[in-house]
């Protein structure tokens, strides 16, 4: 683990950084996406593009519609209106598992480790195109044994990287909250994704683990994957994100590189609207909460 500042990707957008700005190479695009619950409009996004090969953070106060928007992008919820494109392919009418097959994998705010499967089984479940997962093929081990061995090898490599190898035979239920987050992320990588979407990867994680989680997210970028994450921890956002998109009341109110966005009046207002009791300095990341090693 290094203490050096991660290298930020720049030059991601075309023209002035403003809500809905076009990206040089977008991986994901959404236009006119709305989602209403009863009378309440949870999401109303006019246009947004997610830059390829970079780490993008989606932030905003509680109830801003971040998770709902996440669910819409991943097919876990359907929008009332609007279009979405992933790698130039329309996602309209696609179900979540179909979207996942395109190479867009997600994690959940409330970690979904499959508690009564072992850590290794959790990992193997992530691998795609398994012959043994077909109902008829599954009955004849000769068909899937070789592929299973390969999957196991890859899973073990990833488990070593995520420091979970010793736990591979344990039920996932026995892991700590942070380890489950790691397992969920490692399992997501088993699908060989091009876009990794993390819903609050830091929520409920023991501080001792946050640093290694951050490293893992940065590693994804190094390996050429695109990351989009929802986060409340402004320190993490500022530290690793190349691009920040701010949502408030279902709309995108600002976007841009982290340093600029944190200073924008619209962002401060958005947080003031719902976080009047919070110290603004903390919220907007101008006051460092963590130690010097990572200070700018």
């Amino acid at each position: 683990m290094s203490n050096s500042e991660p290298v930020k990707a720049t030059g991601l957008h075309v023209g002035e950084a403003s809500p809905g700005v076009a990206k040089v190479d977008p991986i994901l695009k959404a236009s006119n996406v709305t989602r209403k619950f009863g009378g309440l409009t949870a999401v109303n996004v006019e246009h947004v593009e997610i830059p390829r090969g970079a780490i993008t953070a989606l932030i905003g106060p509680n109830g801003a519609g971040k998770t709902t928007f996440f669910n819409l992008l991943t097919g876990f919820d359907s929008p009332d209106t609007g279009t979405m494109e992933f790698n130039g392919k329309s996602l309209s009418g696609m179900r979540s598992h179909q979207i996942a097959k395109l190479g867009q994998v997600r994690t959940f705010q409330l970690t979904k480790a499959l508690s009564l499967l072992t850590v290794l089984e959790n990992m193997k479940l992530g691998a795609t195109d398994q012959a043994g997962e077909k109902i008829l093929g599954s009955l004849i081990p000769q068909i899937w044994r070789k592929q299973e061995a390969e999957i196991e090898k890859r899973a073990e490599e990833l488990l070593r990287r995520f420091k979970l190898y010793e736990k591979k035979e344990d039920f996932a239920a026995s892991l700590s909250g942070g380890q489950r987050k790691l397992l969920e992320m490692a399992r997501a990588l088993m699908t060989n994704p091009t876009l990794v979407m993390l819903d609050e990867p830091m929520a409920g994680v023991n501080p001792a683990l946050t640093e290694s989680l951050l490293e893992h997210v940065l590693d994804l970028k190094k390996e050429g994957m695109t990351v989009l994450f929802v986060e409340h921890d402004m320190h993490m956002v500022r530290h690793i994100a190349d691009w920040v998109i701010v949502m408030a009341e279902g709309e995108i109110v600002a976007e841009g590189p982290p340093d600029q966005v944190m200073k924008e009046q619209a962002v401060i207002d958005a947080y003031l609207g719902s976080h009047q009791e919070t110290d603004l300095g903390v919220v907007t990341g101008r006051i460092d909460i963590i130690d010097d090693g990572e200070k700018k």
Partner: peptide, 15 residues
């Protein structure tokens, strides 16, 4: 068994 534990997680893996 994964579906028994949490079907959304399995769905998110493309099954």
């Amino acid at each position: 068994k994964g579906i028994r534990e949490d079907e959304d997680a399995v769905r998110a893996l493309g099954k």
